[in-house]
Every structure is written in structure tokens, then in C-alpha cells.
Design a protein around this nucleic acid. Sequence first.
DNA 1: CTATCGGTGTGACTTGGGTCACGTGCAAAA
DNA 2: TTTTGCACGTGACCCAAGTCACACCGATAG
Lengths: 215, 215
Amino acid sequence: MTEKELGLHFPTLEKELLSEIAKYADIKTVREGETIMRTGQNIRAAILVAEGLIKIYREDDEGDEYFMYYLDKGKACAISLVCALGLGTSGVMAKAVTDATILAIPAHYVDEWMGKYKSWAQFAVTSYRERFEELMQVIDHIAFRNMDERLVYYLKRYQEKLNTNTISTSFTEIAQELNSSREVISRLMKKLSEKGAVELMGSHVKIIDLDKAIS
Amino acid sequence: MTEKELGLHFPTLEKELLSEIAKYADIKTVREGETIMRTGQNIRAAILVAEGLIKIYREDDEGDEYFMYYLDKGKACAISLVCALGLGTSGVMAKAVTDATILAIPAHYVDEWMGKYKSWAQFAVTSYRERFEELMQVIDHIAFRNMDERLVYYLKRYQEKLNTNTISTSFTEIAQELNSSREVISRLMKKLSEKGAVELMGSHVKIIDLDKAIS
DNA sequence: CTATCGGTGTGACTTGGGTCACGTGCAAAA
DNA sequence: TTTTGCACGTGACCCAAGTCACACCGATAG
């Protein structure tokens, strides 16, 4: 990947940094559905997303999972950034939602650039804040809201990040990501369609207007 | 506060940095129960805890709250660190659990030191990671566990951080922090005492052995 | 001494949502 | 065409937990 291309994805980073990234980053392409990082895995590189969409979710020992957030192009995995610096292990799973190309920055450079490039430090901190903020939103939803609102929140993020009104994820999978059950999602979707927020088209769901779901 | 004293609380920071902190940090003492930061407040300084214990919790518009974690001496509020760098607003509430002394580092220095002192950058990153990790634990508990386990987790952290086996917080307050209700906590506490994990002494609770709560 | 107030204990009831047991529809494989 | 396998729909049921109502207890104020 050229410095120019990188600049398009990461506009805040300075020229010299981009060329270092171009030189030292390990570029990987991953297929839709491929797992990029798993819980407990050792991290020795920071992950930046150049193209595509990655989802980050939490998985516990019994296989229950909970969706946390998406990373799209131009974003970095905050966890990998910080783990790369501190030599930790991942606490989350990362999976490609679409085909994607990612940059793996060896820990050494993650560290070196912190002092060397202002824009890198800024980028890291911003990544951190955004993810932190999002994580707190997630907590709000699990702690304070019922499944119906959580489902709407899920759909909203899906719509935004995948930039589509068509949900092609199966109810079974949505249920998993919200740590609920298929039947519950099915019932709630029906309610949403009755309110005119979505339209159920058998194999997939079409989002009409999620704001209609309020009440 | 002298450089020597600071060194005791923040052993990983280098000498020169400590003396800068001593010079530029705004030292505040806060009383037990005092609110240090509120949701939506603008942050223009990073908060380090030199002495005492601070609790960080999330509060939504309807006044519901959810406890996230404690910060004790030698720790920094990751949110303030990151907000100070990025000029953001707080997404959380911070309240003193005991009398405490805190250091407010003006945003300018937070930023400057990132490039200047390796130990500062390290300290910041470590703060992030620890808080992030803790936040994910919280998500695990709300998403995957029932109230009884969440209560035990709450008590465990209380015991550890306040370094005591005596819970002097009222059930009403515990209920609030777990976004539950007093009655529920009361019933669960009874169960815990039946299992021999705690002993109910009217006005307060004595922790015997929280591991007995398992099952 | 009594009133008041904050905190706790407890039974009765309600409800969100998880589980079970089926049934349907559709698409790819045989 | 038939079979096999998913994914979805739905009613019946159950349980954790939230809510309501009310009683009790100890401390402090008057």
C-alpha cells in the first residue's frame, strides 16, 4: 500500500509517519467472517483498519458473546494499541464483517512513534477515547435499557456502519451478539415492524425508520 | 506535596517528571462524599489520585447510576487523561469514597509530557489499559451474570479496594450502584449470609468468605 | 418519653425475557 | 422429486428481579 493510499484512510497522520507505516506495517487482507484476534491471544502488533469493517466483541468462557463495537476504515483497535505498548493479551474477539485489509504495526514502532510523531500520539489517544466512550454507551444500554431498545441501538449501529438499510444478519446471530435468544429477537422484530420501524422480508430485514421504534 | 512524597505514590514516574508535577499540579483535597467530576463537565486537567479512594460511575439522564470502578492512590482517571488531551467532556461521575487528595494536571502538561517523559506515556497507557479491562469486566457481569454474582463482584471489589471486611454502605446505596432495588439486595444478602459468605450485623455487613457464595 | 426518620425484612404481585416444543417455508443436495 | 438442513414464527411456561405495601428497629430531635 502506498503512502498516498494510506493518507486517504488516515488523513490526520503526518507524511513522514505514513511513509514509515508503508515501510514497516504488515499488510493483511482478511475475508468476511474471518477471526482476526481472539480472547487471550498475545498481542505484539497494533491493528489499524485500512479497508472494510471489523467487529469487536466480548466472549466469555461459556461461549456467550456480546457485541461491543465496529471498527471501520481509518480506525484502530484501541485494545491492540495499548496491548502492543504494554505487552498484554487481548480481552476481546475481533472478526471481519466484510472483506478487509488491515495493517499490523509491530509493537516496537507503536512505541517509538508515540514520542516521535505528534499525530500518532494524537491518533492513539483519540482511538482510545472513542472506544472508551462507545464502551460506556454499551454499558448504559445493558444496564439501563430493555432488549427492545438494545435491539434498536444494535440496528442503528449496523445501519450506520454498514451504510445500508438491509439487515442480512440472521436473527440467530443478532440474538447471540446481544446475548439474547432467537425467539426474543423474533418477537421484538415483529413489534418493530408493527410500529413501522422496519419491514420484515423473510430472509432479511429492511430498516424503514428506527425513530418510529421509540415508545 | 514534595517530589519525595509523590515518588511514593507514583513509583514508576521518573524524578524530573515528579518535580514537574510538584511544580505544576494543582493539589486539591476533597472530603468523603464530595463529587469531583460530573457527566458532561468540561475537562481541562487530568486527575491523579495521590491519597484516598475515588469511585467512578455512570449516570444516565433519569438519574439511574451504575458503578464502574474505583481509583485508588497511584492511579489516574483514564477519562480525564484522554479528555485533557482531546479537549472532551466527561462521560462519567467521580466521587470521593474517602477523604482524598488529588492532583489536577493542566491539559497542557499532560500533552507536553507525553513526548518528553517515557514514564508518563507509559503511565497513561497503563491507565487506559487497566480501566478498559475493568470496564470490560463490568460488561461481562451485566451482560452474562445475574444479580447475585454481580453483588458478590461488587463486594469483592469493595473489600479489596477499601481493604476491609466491613461493608458500611447501605443496601439502598448498593442497590443504586448496581441499578437494582433495595429489596433485591436485601434478599440476596440474606442468601449470602445463609451460605456463610457474609454475616449481617444490622447496621453493617461483615464479609466472611465470598468464595462460599459460589453455586 | 415520644415522634420522626432512615434503613432493613418480607410476602404478594407483575413483568421482561429466556426456554421448550412445535410448525412452516425455502433452498441445496441426493 | 424427495430429503435434509436452516432460519423464522408462535404459544405455553417459568424464573429472576423489579414494584408495592407494610411492619419493624434503632437513633436522634424535640
